[in-house]
Amino acid sequence: MAGGADGQERAERPRQDAAEPVSGETAAPAADRELLDDVDGLLDEIDAVLETNAEEFVRGYVQKGGQ
């Protein structure tokens, strides 16, 4: 993957603090909890839509080219 926004530098953070940089080590416990809740919530949404056989679905998703 190109670029520094990838990999190591995962800057997920609670929304309320979006304006001020938060690093993993210094985040307040409250913010940490919120972060975890948020990710869990996202994962719930993801799980709810990925119930099919992923490999088969991906292999089968073939479209013809458009414009």
Binding site: V39, L42, I46, L50, A54, F57, V58
Partner: peptide
């Protein structure tokens, strides 16, 4: 990333593609 982190998936995993 949330999905990758929880399930230990590589970026080329079919679940990521889906």
């Amino acid at each position: 990333r949330a999905l990758q982190d929880r399930d230990g998936l590589a970026l080329d995993d079919p679940r990521v593609a889906l």
